[in-house]
Amino acid sequence: MSIQHFRVALIPFFAAFCLPVFAHPETLVKVKDAEDQLGARVGYIELDLNSGKILESFRPEERFPMMSTFKVLLCGAVLSRVDAGQEQLGRRIHYSQNDLVEYSPVTEKHLTDGMTVRELCSAAITMSDNTAANLLLTTIGGPKELTAFLHNMGDHVTRLDRWEPELNEAIPNDERDTTMPAAMATTLRKLLTGELLTLASRQQLIDWMEADKVAGPLLRSALPAGWFIADKSGAGERGSRGIIAALGPDGKPSRIVVIYTTGSQATMDERNRQIAEIGASLIKHW
C-alpha cells in the first residue's frame, strides 16, 4: 500500500482519535458579512469528516447552483462504474471539434489522439474542462443518470439537468442544476469515506481534487503551510461562485467545507476574496 493510499485508508482512524471539535460562531459572522459585502445569498456548511456531524452552517438547506462543483460527483459516478466493471479508466475516447464547448483548455489539445477516461476526469476536476465533463456525462448516460446515481446514494436534493455550459445559467428560483450545502457536503463525505467506492477509487477521487489547479484564489489562499486540501470550485452566471473541499491540518483532511453564493453584482475577484476570507476565519478558529 502506498503512503497516499495509507493516508486515505486511515482518515477515519486518525479522526477518531482527534480531540473533540467545537464550532466557532466567528466564522458564521464572516459568512454573514460576506453576504453584506456581496449583496447576495451565501450558503455555508462545515462537517466533521469522521462523524458527519454538522459543526457550523448557514442557509444549509437553500438551493444554490452547483456550477462546476458537480464534476466531482460526476467522476465519482464514473469511478463507481469502474468498480462495477462497467468502465475502464484506460479506455480512450475520441471526439471532434464539434464536441468542444466553451472553456476546454485540455480537451482542445487532444482532438487528434483523444483522451482516456482517467485523463478526462483529471481534466474535468483539476482544470474544470467543460468538454471533458460533457464527454464523461455521455459515458454514464447524461445528466439524468448522474441525478439517479445521487438518488441511489441517498441524495434526493442534488440534481443535474443540463450539460456544460448551460448548467451554469443560475436563474433565480430555478431548481435545475442545483444542490443544497448540506446535501453536497453529505454526498461528498460519502464519496470520500464511505463504502460506495473502493479504496482505490476513493484515493483516485481525492487525488484529482488535491491536484486542483484553478481554485488557488479561494480556500487555498488562506491555508497555512502543512495543511491538506482537496477541492473543486465552480463559477456561473449572475454572480455565482462555489467551492467544495476536504481539508485539515497535519497533512490530512478532517472536515468537509461547502460554500456557495449566487445573485451578486460583485466582480469575480471580490467573490473570490470573500470566500478566501471565510476560509481564513475557519482556519483561525479551527
Rank of each mutant, 00 (worst) to 15 (best):
I243C: 10
P181E: 02
G141W: 04
D129Y: 00
E102A: 10
T131S: 11
N272H: 05
F70W: 07
A40Y: 04
L55A: 09
Y44G: 01
T69P: 04
M180Q: 09
L74D: 02
L196G: 10
G39L: 13
L111Q: 09
M209E: 01
T69K: 00
H285P: 02
T138I: 14
L146V: 07
I275A: 03
I229S: 02
R92F: 11
D207C: 12
P25V: 10
E119K: 15
L197M: 14
N50R: 11
P217L: 11
E26G: 15
D48K: 03
N50I: 09
A276L: 12
Q204N: 15
L38Y: 09
A84I: 14
M67K: 00
V257L: 09
V157F: 09
R220T: 03
T267Y: 07
L167Q: 03
A245F: 03
D161E: 10
L150P: 02
S233G: 10
L136K: 01
L160D: 03
S68K: 00
A84D: 13
Q265R: 07
A200T: 13
S240L: 02
V78S: 03
E195G: 13
K71V: 00
L196F: 11
Y44P: 00
N134D: 08
Q86F: 15
T27W: 03
W227V: 00
K53S: 14
Y95V: 06
K232H: 01
A123D: 03
E277R: 06
L191S: 03
T261S: 13
H156V: 09
G142W: 02
T262R: 08
E108T: 15
T262C: 09
A84M: 11
K232V: 00
I54K: 15
I140C: 13
R91G: 05
I206G: 10
I93L: 06
L79R: 00
S281V: 09
L191E: 02
A40V: 14
P165G: 09
T187G: 10
S254A: 09
S57Q: 07
S240M: 04
G279M: 09
N152M: 13
P181Y: 02
D99V: 06
I45A: 15
G114P: 04
S233T: 08
L160H: 06
P181K: 01
V101D: 09
I283R: 15
L120G: 03
L38K: 09
V117T: 08
P25N: 11
L55V: 12
P249Y: 06
R273F: 10
I244Y: 01
Q265L: 10
Q274M: 11
S80C: 12
L28M: 08
G279V: 05
T27I: 14
A148W: 10
G251K: 15
H285V: 08
H110W: 14
E56F: 04
Q203F: 15
T131E: 04
P224K: 05
P249Q: 10
E56Y: 05
K32M: 13
E175I: 14
E145F: 12
A246P: 01
P143F: 05
A230L: 05
L74I: 15
T158C: 03
